[in-house]
Simulated scan of single mutants.
Amino acid sequence: MIKPRDKAPELTIKLVNDTTWKLSEQSPENFTMVLFYRGKHCPVCKSQLEELQKKLDKFTQRGVSVIAISSDTEDVAKATYKDWDISDIPLGYGLPIEEAREWGLFISEGIKEEPKHFTEPGLFLITPEQTVYWESLQSMPFGRPSFNDVLGGIDYILKADYPARGEA
């Protein structure tokens, strides 16, 4: 289990624009927000990512860079990018289940039309030094933090120089 203030696991992921994204190469002003989503099969993920698209400028204004990642295959991820209204969100794919476990993500076995295995949702704020500041993990598709709450939290964190919590 990763705790706040721990070094985040290295993360190297392919993006749908045929580039590679590395956590260790990120240099945000304040945070990198890594959003792990279940995949194209998930209508709640579609709503969440499309909501993120609408609020992306608000994160950027706060010095937060964003990436969304799933364990979907390249073809499925590229279809997701094309079919969902998420044109400005860097979209990563092919997250190995073993790496997802390193992040503490819950893993589900597919039912019906779902992939054989996939990650349940997780949201991480990572500092420019690559330490975990904030994490929210779900074992179900429901009950994810609202982006308004996350933005409000970031505002408070930056104003009050609030330390990462949950490390003890």
Rank of each mutant, 00 (worst) to 15 (best):
residue 2 I to C: 02
residue 3 K to W: 02
residue 3 K to E: 07
residue 4 P to V: 07
residue 6 D to P: 02
residue 6 D to G: 04
residue 6 D to N: 15
residue 10 E to H: 12
residue 12 T to C: 11
residue 20 T to K: 09
residue 21 W to N: 04
residue 22 K to I: 01
residue 23 L to N: 11
residue 23 L to V: 10
residue 24 S to K: 14
residue 24 S to T: 14
residue 25 E to I: 03
residue 28 P to F: 00
residue 30 N to S: 12
residue 33 M to F: 09
residue 34 V to Y: 00
residue 35 L to G: 04
residue 36 F to H: 12
residue 37 Y to S: 06
residue 42 C to S: 15
residue 43 P to W: 13
residue 46 K to W: 05
residue 47 S to L: 14
residue 50 E to P: 10
residue 56 L to E: 08
residue 60 T to R: 13
residue 62 R to K: 15
residue 63 G to P: 00
residue 68 A to R: 12
residue 68 A to I: 11
residue 68 A to Q: 09
residue 72 D to S: 07
residue 72 D to N: 06
residue 74 E to S: 12
residue 76 V to Q: 07
residue 78 K to I: 04
residue 79 A to L: 12
residue 80 T to D: 07
residue 82 K to M: 06
residue 87 S to F: 03
residue 90 P to S: 07
residue 91 L to D: 02
residue 93 Y to M: 05
residue 96 P to R: 14
residue 97 I to Q: 08
residue 99 E to C: 02
residue 100 A to C: 09
residue 102 E to S: 15
residue 111 I to N: 09
residue 113 E to N: 15
residue 116 K to L: 11
residue 116 K to Y: 05
residue 116 K to M: 08
residue 117 H to C: 02
residue 117 H to Y: 15
residue 118 F to I: 05
residue 120 E to D: 05
residue 122 G to P: 12
residue 130 Q to E: 13
residue 130 Q to G: 01
residue 131 T to A: 08
residue 131 T to V: 04
residue 132 V to A: 09
residue 134 W to A: 06
residue 139 S to E: 13
residue 141 P to G: 13
residue 145 P to H: 06
residue 146 S to F: 03
residue 146 S to K: 14
residue 149 D to A: 15
residue 150 V to Y: 01
residue 150 V to T: 13
residue 151 L to T: 01
residue 152 G to Y: 04
residue 152 G to A: 15
residue 153 G to E: 04
residue 156 Y to E: 09
residue 157 I to C: 03
residue 162 Y to T: 04
residue 162 Y to R: 11
residue 167 E to P: 00
